[in-house]
């Protein structure tokens, strides 16, 4: 809902979530799939150094997704 309101105000949004179907239902245009509901922005099962890389990747993918034109809600992996 926050993502949708931000987009209404003209700010493009990428939503990072493990619940990929839900933002689609709500009309969020760019969704970035993450590992699990309990840790949407990382993966605590990894050693800290590797997890840092995962987090960096999320950020890079998110920034890339933001620059992409979408016609309908899309999930990026």
């Amino acid at each position: 809902m926050i993502a949708r309101e931000l987009e209404k105000a003209g700010v493009p949004v990428v939503q990072l979530t493990a619940l990929t179907p839900i933002p689609n239902t709500l009309g969020v245009n760019r969704v970035l799939a993450s590992a699990a509901i309990t840790y949407p922005t990382g993966d605590p099962s990894l050693p800290p150094a590797e997890e840092k890389q995962v987090r960096k990747q999320y950020l890079r993918k998110a920034l890339k997704a933001l620059q992409q034109q979408v016609e309908k809600p899309e999930v990026f992996y």
Binding site: A18, L19, T20, P21, A33, A35, A36, I37, T38
Partner: peptide
Amino acid sequence: AVRTEWTTM
């Protein structure tokens, strides 16, 4: 009986 609140899709 189905358990819910699994953490990944």
